[in-house]
Deep mutational scan, measured.
Amino acid sequence: NARWTTEEQLLAVQAIRKYGRDFQAISDVIGNKSVVQVKNFFVNYRRRFNIDEVLQEWEAEHGK
């Protein structure tokens, strides 16, 4: 399903906090979204969920 429920959106943001840009890991956490759908989520929801800021926090924690 290409549509993202609110629950899936929140799950994705939590997974980004945990896995950074590991699209496969994020896809696995959500369970019903492909890697391509996760990559599209990054692009389409970047502003709404401040994904750049979430990634900066992840990179700071993981030394990337």
Rank of each mutant, 00 (worst) to 15 (best):
V43S: 09
Q37P: 02
A60L: 11
L11K: 10
I30A: 02
T6G: 08
F42L: 07
D22R: 03
D22A: 02
R17C: 10
R47F: 12
K39F: 00
W4F: 04
K18V: 06
V29R: 10
S27M: 02
T5V: 00
R47L: 14
V36C: 11
I30E: 02
G31Q: 06
S27I: 08
V54Q: 07
E7G: 10
N44H: 09
F41R: 02
L10M: 10
V54A: 12
N44W: 09
D52V: 04
K18S: 08
S34I: 00
I30W: 03
E53Y: 09
S27F: 01
A2I: 15
R48L: 12
R48A: 12
R17D: 03
E8L: 02
D22H: 01
R17F: 10
E7P: 04
W4G: 03
L11Q: 10
Q56F: 11
G31L: 03
V38Y: 01
F42H: 05
V43H: 07
R46G: 15
L10I: 09
Q14A: 13
Q24L: 04
N44L: 10
K33N: 06
W4N: 01
I51C: 03
V13F: 10
Q37T: 03
V54L: 15
Q9S: 11
F41I: 00
G20A: 00
E61K: 09
E8F: 03
R47C: 12
D22Y: 12
Q24H: 05
N40G: 08
A60W: 06
Y19A: 02
E53W: 09
Q37I: 01
Q56W: 04
N40K: 11
V43I: 15
N32L: 03
K18E: 09
T6M: 15
Q56G: 10
T5E: 04
T6I: 08
R3H: 11
T6D: 08
D22L: 01
A15C: 12
Q24G: 06
N40P: 01
Y19D: 05
A12M: 14
V13H: 12
V54M: 13
V29F: 07
G31D: 02
K18L: 10
D52F: 05
R3C: 10
G31I: 01
Q24S: 11
E61V: 09
V54I: 14
L10Q: 14
N50Y: 05
E7V: 08
R3N: 12
